[in-house]
Simulated scan of single mutants.
Amino acid sequence: MLTWPDTISAVRDSFRTAATGGIMQPAAAQVGMANGSLHLKAGGLLDPALLSVKANLRPDAARALGVILVFDPDQVTLRAVLDSADVTAYRTAATAVVAAGALGAKDGCSVAVLGTGRVAGGVLAAMPHDIAVGAFHVWGRDRDRAERLARTADRPVSIHVHDTPASAAAQADIVVTCTPSRSPLLSAADLREGTLVLAMGADSPGKRELAADVLADAVIVADDLEAVTRVGEVAFHPNASGNAALGELGSVITGAVALPGDAGRTRRVVFDSVGIAFVDTAMAALLLRTAQGRDLGTPFHFAPPPAVTEQ
Rank of each mutant, 00 (worst) to 15 (best):
M1G: 05
L2C: 02
D13E: 15
R16T: 15
T20Y: 00
G21V: 06
G22S: 06
V31N: 02
G32S: 15
A34V: 13
A34F: 01
G36R: 01
H39L: 11
A42T: 06
G44C: 09
G44L: 06
P48M: 01
S52H: 05
K54C: 06
A55L: 15
R58S: 11
P59M: 13
P59V: 12
A62G: 10
A62V: 01
R63Q: 11
G66E: 11
V67W: 12
D72V: 11
Q75F: 00
T77R: 14
D83Q: 09
V97I: 10
A100I: 09
C109Y: 14
S110M: 07
V111H: 12
R118S: 12
V123F: 02
L124E: 04
A125D: 14
A126H: 08
M127W: 05
I131Y: 07
I131G: 00
I131S: 00
A135C: 13
F136S: 07
W139Q: 04
G140D: 08
G140T: 08
R145L: 06
A146I: 10
T152R: 10
A153C: 07
A153N: 09
S158T: 14
H160F: 10
V161R: 08
T164N: 03
S167W: 05
A169N: 04
A172G: 03
D173V: 08
I174A: 03
P180W: 12
P180L: 14
S181V: 03
R182G: 12
S183C: 04
L191T: 02
L191N: 03
R192D: 05
E193G: 06
L198Q: 02
G201A: 06
D203N: 13
L210D: 06
L210S: 05
A211R: 04
D213L: 06
L215I: 04
E226R: 09
V228M: 01
T229D: 05
T229W: 02
V231Q: 04
G232L: 03
G232Q: 00
V234C: 11
N239G: 13
S241V: 13
A244M: 02
A245P: 06
A245R: 08
L249Y: 12
G250S: 01
S251C: 02
V252I: 15
I253D: 00
T254W: 06
A256T: 13
A263K: 10
G264Y: 02
D272W: 10
V274A: 03
F278S: 06
V279Y: 02
T281F: 03
L286E: 10
L287R: 11
A291R: 00
R294G: 11
R294N: 14
R294Y: 05
F300A: 14
P304G: 03
P305T: 13
V308P: 02
V308Q: 10
